[in-house]
Simulated scan of single mutants.
Amino acid sequence: MQTASTNICERMGRSQELSDSKRGPVIGGHLGNKSIRDISWLLNIPRSTVSGIITKWKQLGTTATQPPSGRPRHMTERGQRMLKHTVRRSRQLSAELIAKDL
């Protein structure tokens, strides 16, 4: 029987990831010939998460979190909004003064 305090899905939320200490037993179970369903039930982790960890381990040889792919975002949305607001507020400012202000 699962309670709210033991259900990892309710505690984690969608955006959080499992720690390395929780990923290790998943790989250990896989190497011990346990099924994804058994590993999921034993560790109280969703089957999709267990499957993803095993797939990642098979492809990359590691379960560590990888950096995101793609071009890095240098300016956040908040920074873009601030820049637009500054330019609209005083259109006579030079680029140096705007950069200094930000």
Rank of each mutant, 00 (worst) to 15 (best):
I8W: 07
I54H: 15
L83H: 08
T3R: 06
M75D: 14
K56W: 11
G32E: 12
N44S: 14
K56S: 15
S90N: 14
G70E: 00
Q2Y: 11
N44F: 08
S90W: 09
P25Y: 10
G32V: 02
G28A: 10
G24W: 02
L93P: 00
V50N: 09
I53M: 15
L42S: 10
L83G: 13
E10K: 07
S15F: 06
R78L: 12
A99V: 10
L18Q: 02
I39N: 01
V26P: 05
R73T: 11
C9Y: 07
V26R: 06
S69G: 03
A64M: 10
K84S: 05
P67C: 02
R88M: 03
S40N: 00
M12H: 08
S94E: 03
S40T: 01
M12T: 09
I39G: 03
D101G: 09
G79K: 14
Q92G: 00
S48T: 00
K22I: 00
E17Q: 07
K34Q: 14
R81W: 07
L42D: 13
S94A: 02
R37G: 02
S5K: 02
M12F: 14
A99R: 14
T63H: 06
T63C: 08
R73M: 03
G79D: 14
E10Y: 07
G13Y: 06
T3V: 09
D101T: 13
S48G: 00
R88D: 05
G70F: 02
I98T: 04
Q66T: 07
R71Q: 03
T6E: 15
W41K: 04
T6L: 11
A99L: 13
Q80K: 14
P67E: 07
R14Q: 01
S35H: 05
R73C: 07
I54E: 14
G61L: 13
G70N: 02
R81I: 10
R81Y: 08
S90T: 14
S35M: 05
I98E: 03
R71M: 02
I8K: 15
L93W: 06
G70K: 00
P67K: 12
S15M: 02
G61S: 11
I36Y: 03
T49C: 04
R88Y: 04
H85E: 12
R81S: 11
G61A: 11
K34A: 12
L43I: 07
K84V: 05
S48A: 00
L31Q: 11
S94F: 01
S51H: 10
N33P: 00
W57F: 15
Q2H: 12
D20N: 04
R91Q: 11
G32T: 01
S15I: 08
I54K: 15
